[in-house]
Structure formats: structure tokens, C-alpha cells
Simulated scan of single mutants.
Amino acid sequence: MDTVLYIIAGEWIVFLVFIFSLGFVYGGKTERISKWYIQRSFLLFVLAIIAIIVIQRFEPGILLLRVIPDTVLSGVAGIVITTAGLAFATWARIHLGKFWSSMPMIKAGHHLIRTGPYRIVRNPMYTGMLVAFAGSAIVTGKLVAFIAVGIIVIGLWLKIKAEEDILLEKFGEEYIQFKRDVKALIPYIL
């Protein structure tokens, strides 16, 4: 189990170093940033912490309940799923180039990216990261990991909505058409 966790942690570290280092090297000038995203994501974070504290207070130990058995199969499945998700997110990061940012914003010279994974889903980095979080939760196998994935889904949905607002404001009908053509997170479904 420890080896599998080290592999997963290593994958996440490499991924995060990659996406943020490209941002430092190729980051462009910010034109507009979402005003409400920070407030709503902070509120979500506070509510999640409160919920976890309340659950732990009334049901001690339940968050550490193992819901996926610690087996070779779950370890391999978790590594494969995490790797696939991070590879997809990396592909998206490469296609996004200088328009990537960790916050919902418009960069100078911004245009809609509709190549590579952006032909499949509008938010491929989030799709890939959610797949990777699910793989990581499988490896951990504990209830708290799956609750964390649920909280991350809500957080990313808030971020998607903030991004959609500023992209709609910037690109208007072009973005509306993009939304009609390509689903947000799951190809052809959602």
C-alpha cells in the first residue's frame, strides 16, 4: 500500500510542477478575473471543513472507514486511473498554453481553444483531474477520500461556472456555440 501511495503522490507532484512551471514561463498578462469565484470557493471550503468536523464529532472514525479493500487490484486500478486522468489533464494544459491560469480569468489576446482535448470536452483539465482524484481515492480506499472527491466536484463546478461567465462576456455567441457543440466534463453527456 505504501508503495502505491508514493507512486500516486509522485504523479501528482510531477503534474503540479509541470502545470505551474509552464504558467510561470508562458503566463500572459491578465485582462479580467472572476470576482465572485474566490468568495464562493472560500465559502465551500469553510462549509466542507465544518461538515467534516461535525461528522467526526458525531461518528468518530467513520471518515477513516475503508470502503475499497486494500488489494493489488485496487492499487493497480488506482494507479492506472490516476495516470490516465493526469495524462489527459496534461494534454489539455499543453493545448491551453499561455491562456492557462489557476483562477478563472481572461488573458490578453485570449481566444477559445478548440483543439486537442477541447474538441472532446470544454474543461478537459478538470475532467482529467477528476478522473485522477477518483483513482487516488480508490488507492486510499477510505470514505474521507471519496467525500473529498465530492467536495472537489462541487468546487470545480463553481470554477466552471465562473469561467463560463467571463468567457461568455468575452466571446458571446462564439462561446454559446462552443457550449452547444461540446459538453462540459463528460463527452456527449455532461
Rank of each mutant, 00 (worst) to 15 (best):
S102L: 13
I94L: 14
R40G: 13
T140Q: 06
K142F: 11
G78R: 07
S41F: 13
S74Y: 11
T30G: 04
I120V: 14
I49S: 11
A92P: 06
I81R: 03
A148S: 15
F99P: 03
I147Y: 14
I152K: 03
L44D: 07
K161L: 12
V80S: 00
L64P: 00
G155R: 03
E59S: 10
R93S: 08
I62S: 10
F133H: 14
I38R: 14
G85S: 02
I160C: 11
R32V: 11
T83P: 02
R57Q: 06
G78W: 05
F42W: 10
A148D: 10
P69G: 01
R93I: 01
I53M: 10
F45R: 13
A92I: 03
V80T: 02
Y126V: 10
V149M: 08
K98C: 02
L143Y: 08
R32F: 13
P124M: 08
F88A: 09
I62Y: 02
F58D: 05
F146N: 08
M129I: 12
A51S: 15
M103T: 14
V54H: 05
S41Y: 13
H110A: 08
I81F: 00
I38N: 14
R66V: 05
V139I: 05
W157A: 06
L112R: 06
I50E: 09
A87D: 00
L130K: 08
D70G: 05
T140F: 07
K35W: 06
V131F: 04
D165P: 00
F146S: 07
M103K: 13
V131G: 01
I113G: 02
G141H: 05
Q56G: 11
V144F: 15
F133M: 15
A132T: 06
I79M: 05
A137N: 09
R32C: 06
V153C: 03
G135P: 00
F99W: 13
